[in-house]
Amino acid sequence: MSGRQGVILFGHGARDPAWAGPMQRMRERMRALAPELEVTLAFLELMSPSLAEAAEALIAGGCQRLVILPVFLAQGGHLKRDLPALLAELAARHPQVEFKLEQAVGEAEPVVAAIADYACACARTPSR
């Protein structure tokens, strides 16, 4: 499939807007590293845009392939039940678009290794 590719960093959402700060930094880093990608954020609840709103905007902008990357620590109920249902609705409305769902970022080996390295560094740093 040709055409533009979009990436949706999908998070749970929170009442405090500052909660999305790390995801916003991820988005900006991705845009710097891969300017050919259309990268946006989406949230399951409490924040905007929703997954459908983010996907619709990317599709309207010409994206024909969307990679959904759950920014969750692990594959819990939201990722096992809620997200597949949301994606099925989108796929039914947009059969011309390829949707690719990735595993939760917290389950990817490089992320697990980075967290373990960070935890070890924290443990080895003397208290102030």
Rank of each mutant, 00 (worst) to 15 (best):
A42V: 04
A42D: 06
L46M: 12
S48Q: 13
P49Q: 06
E53T: 14
A54P: 07
A55S: 15
A57T: 06
Q64L: 12
R65E: 14
L66D: 14
V67P: 02
L69Q: 13
P70L: 10
V71M: 09
V71Y: 06
L73E: 08
A74L: 10
Q75P: 06
G77Q: 12
G77M: 09
G77E: 07
H78E: 05
H78S: 07
R81Q: 15
L83G: 02
L83K: 05
A85G: 12
A85C: 08
L87Y: 03
L87V: 09
A88L: 14
L90K: 09
L90I: 05
A91P: 06
R93W: 02
R93G: 12
H94N: 03
Q96W: 05
V97Y: 09
V97Q: 10
K100Y: 06
E102P: 01
V105K: 00
G106Q: 03
E107W: 03
E109P: 05
P110G: 03
V111I: 15
V111M: 02
V111D: 00
V112I: 15
A113M: 00
A114M: 08
A114T: 00
A114S: 12
A116E: 10
D117S: 08
D117L: 00
Y118M: 13
A119M: 09
A119I: 01
C120H: 13
C120E: 11
A121G: 09
A121W: 01
R124E: 07
R124Q: 14
R124T: 00
S127P: 07
